[in-house]
Design a protein around this nucleic acid. Structure first.
Lengths: 140, 140
DNA sequence: GTTGACCTTCCCATTGTGGGAAGGTGCAGG
DNA sequence: CCTGCACCTTCCCACAATGGGAAGGTCAAC
């Protein structure tokens, strides 16, 4: 099947499928005579695996490792579990950071009238230099 | 003061200070005769403001808006509050997504022996194509 | 003077994704 | 047969925000 079909069936954009191939995350796709990539149901299954691990927040590097473990029928499940737990721990850390930030933000917002008046505790507070700051709460 | 001092006092790297200036987030810094940037205590206060808003997870675009609001003494506090609340809502959405992902991951990890045996429910599950997937839980 | 710690600008890499150009292919309808 | 349209190909650019590092100027201390 063409890349468009594969994309539709997996929810991975054609752009990304080509990219994953280019960085070696996926093996080179088979080609037809006209040069079009040709995907089998097997390939689609791999793409779905990738899609799902991506949805669970694994980086492409981790996806690559998981793919290798998936393919290697003899690896101990310990390795897979370790990878998953490392990722969970990472998510937990980020959630803690975000919670702290949200707490601060909610407090700030709560004390701001939010009306026509110009005095604003949020900005006043932001202007105050702090010693202890939660670092590195960045967006997606 | 030199950029190095300003950086040290604000926790914003010299690299980032120059970058913020280059994209117009900050006004062009004063220069000495030797071409070195020269920062006043005022400038440092602005950098601290930026640092703090960044730490709270605002994007540079939002920081820019907040800086403008901060400078505009006559703006209604409503505008600031709206910005803060939009950001809070965004964080909340992301936290919800992460929570859902974590729940799934914990379940998967729980059912995996994590020992020498090779059968692994995590990989089995990842291989199963799903209909409903949490999308877009990406890293930092 | 030389050394070392600064500063300057400029370019490159990252992570993962999308946009779009320029060109080839394939099929359907006139 | 031609035309159009939908698809495919590769290639380059952009994004957000940050760091690394090169090549060169400056300054202070020894």
């Amino acid at each position: 099947m063409n890349i468009g079909q594969a994309s539709e069936q997996t929810g991975v954009s054609a752009k990304m499928i080509r990219y994953y191939e280019s960085i070696g995350l996926l093996p080179s796709a088979a080609r037809r005579e006209n040069g079009y990539r040709d995907y089998s149901d097997q390939d689609v299954a791999v793409l779905q695996f990738v899609r799902r691990t991506r949805d669970l927040g694994f980086s492409l590097e981790e996806v690559s490792a998981l793919l290798a473990l998936w393919t290697d029928k003899k690896r101990p499940s310990r390795e897979v579990k370790r990878l998953a737990e490392t990722h969970i721990a990472d998510l937990e850390r980020r959630m803690r950071e975000m919670r702290a930030v949200m707490k601060t933000l909610r407090q700030l917002a709560q004390h701001c009238h939010g009306d026509e008046r110009s005095d604003c505790p949020i900005l006043d507070d932001l202007a105050k230099p702090r010693a202890a700051n939660a670092k590195k709460v960045r967006r997606r």
